[in-house]
């Protein structure tokens, strides 16, 4: 890594950590979602510095342009009347226990494992990714499609039930 990339890596890392903390700690849901968007963008920057440019761009495409917009959209449509929706301040619920457990497991796993040496970055990783998706990883790739389809059908079923 050159000096400039190291500096940028630190900048993106600090940005990611701060925005992630803000997203969790703020009580205002809207600011939380925007901070999540900032976190995901910083993460894309880190992916790019790690020579995974396709992953970086897809991160912005899917997460910032898709998921964050969807969350904002859902928040604005569901909270009509309440102009500044807030999260409940109770942080001892079951959800937080699960979150702490998963976080702890991830920290434990990353401390225990030794990271393998990074292979040389490919000049253009897209053809390799494409081949991997349509050959050895075909089954999980298609399975994800089926899961997403099930999610869409489930969402439709929920909406129809409410209308009936």
């Amino acid at each position: 890594m050159t000096t400039a990339t190291t500096v940028l890596f630190v900048v993106f890392g600090v940005l990611a950590a701060l925005s992630a903390l803000y997203a969790v700690l703020t009580r205002y849901l809207l600011r939380s979602i925007v901070a999540l968007g900032a976190f995901l963008t910083a993460l894309a920057g880190i992916f790019y510095l790690l020579a995974a440019d396709f992953v970086a761009v897809v991160q912005i495409f899917v997460y910032v342009g898709g998921i964050v917009v969807l969350m904002l959209f859902a928040l604005m449509l569901s909270s009509s009347g309440v102009r500044h929706p807030t999260a409940s301040s109770d942080r001892r619920s079951l959800g937080s226990i699960v979150a702490y457990a998963v976080g702890g497991m991830l920290v434990w796993a990353s401390l225990r494992s030794t990271l393998p040496g990074m292979p040389a970055a490919l000049p253009d990783s897209v053809p390799y990714l494409g081949r991997a998706f349509l050959n050895e990883q075909l089954f999980p790739f298609e399975l994800i499609g089926v899961i997403l389809l099930a999610a869409v059908v489930a969402a439709l079923a929920l909406v129809r039930k409410e209308r009936a």
Partner: peptide
């Protein structure tokens, strides 16, 4: 960028967040 075409489709997508925020924040 080796993935410039995807970049061009992805980055303007962030505009929507700005429009949503502006519309919501205006009260």
């Amino acid at each position: 960028l080796n993935v410039g075409v995807v970049y061009f489709l992805a980055v303007p997508g962030m505009t929507v967040i700005g429009l949503l925020l502006a519309g919501w924040a205006s009260y």
